[in-house]
Computed example of a mutant assay.
Amino acid sequence: MTTREFIPVRIAVLTVSDTRTPEDDRSGDVLAKRLTEAGHHLAARDIVKDNRAAISDKLRSWAGDPEIDVVISTGGTGLTGRDVTVEAHRDVYEKEIDAFSTLFTQVSIGKIGTSAVQSRACGGVAQGTYMFALPGSPGACKDGWDEILAHQLDYRHMPCNFVEIMPRLEEHKRRK
């Protein structure tokens, strides 16, 4: 069996909230701590209000930054009128990773039962950058990272992972 070397990726964390500040952003703290403990680089971190245009502008900016490989947002994935993170993500995605939502729901069912139907966690790709929207609770961020993203963002994870296909995300733009 071949052993692969770990490849760190550069991950930006975006908290979507009308009320959070850097001092009390527990969900952003969870993600920043977990990704750095895993050996990845915290490339950027910010907080934006629950505003679709502001969220999508930040996502587009980070997708265009060559120093960012992955964006994970937390907050705004629920059903209330202010929850517009999923719509903002979808405004930016070139391709949606449908199975991310499905798998997150399966993980959530094991933790919170039927309340899992209230989350609209999603994932996609834009400009060669992976993007994931997680709910705003620290527990949901732990679940999303520990059960899905920690594995898919680890090049050593077999049989396949997101890191190994990163170089091919924009192959359609290469000259023939």
Rank of each mutant, 00 (worst) to 15 (best):
M1W: 02
F6A: 00
I7T: 00
P8V: 08
V9G: 06
V9C: 01
R10V: 01
R10E: 06
A12F: 14
V13R: 06
V16A: 00
D18N: 13
E23S: 06
D24V: 00
D24C: 02
S27K: 13
S27H: 01
D29P: 03
L31M: 13
K33P: 11
K33D: 14
L35C: 03
L35W: 08
L35F: 07
T36Q: 06
E37T: 13
G39L: 05
H41G: 00
L42Y: 14
L42P: 03
A44R: 08
I47E: 00
V48N: 09
K49G: 01
K49C: 12
N51S: 13
A54L: 11
I55S: 14
S56M: 00
D57F: 10
L59G: 02
R60P: 00
W62Q: 02
D65K: 00
P66R: 07
E67M: 13
V70P: 03
V70A: 04
V71Q: 09
I72Y: 00
I72T: 08
I72F: 09
T74N: 02
T77H: 08
T77D: 11
G78Y: 15
L79S: 09
G81H: 13
R82Y: 09
V84S: 13
V84Q: 05
T85E: 06
V86S: 08
V86F: 06
A88S: 09
H89K: 07
R90E: 13
D91N: 05
D91Q: 12
V92I: 04
V92C: 07
E94S: 05
E94M: 15
A99V: 15
A99N: 09
Q106M: 14
Q106G: 03
Q106C: 06
I109Y: 11
I109F: 10
G110I: 12
I112M: 11
I112V: 00
I112A: 05
G113L: 11
T114I: 09
S115N: 14
S115M: 07
A116M: 11
Q118N: 09
S119G: 12
R120H: 15
A121I: 13
A121M: 09
C122F: 03
V125G: 09
V125F: 10
V125Q: 03
A126D: 01
Q127F: 05
Q127M: 12
Q127N: 13
M131F: 08
L134V: 03
L134Y: 04
P135E: 04
P135Y: 15
G136Y: 04
S137P: 01
G144C: 03
G144R: 10
W145K: 11
W145N: 09
E147C: 12
I148D: 11
I148T: 08
I148M: 05
A150Y: 04
A150Q: 06
Y155S: 15
R156M: 00
H157E: 14
H157W: 15
H157V: 06
M158G: 13
P159G: 10
N161E: 01
E164W: 05
E164H: 12
M166A: 12
P167E: 00
R168T: 05
L169C: 11
L169K: 07
E170R: 15
H172E: 06
R174P: 11
R174Q: 15
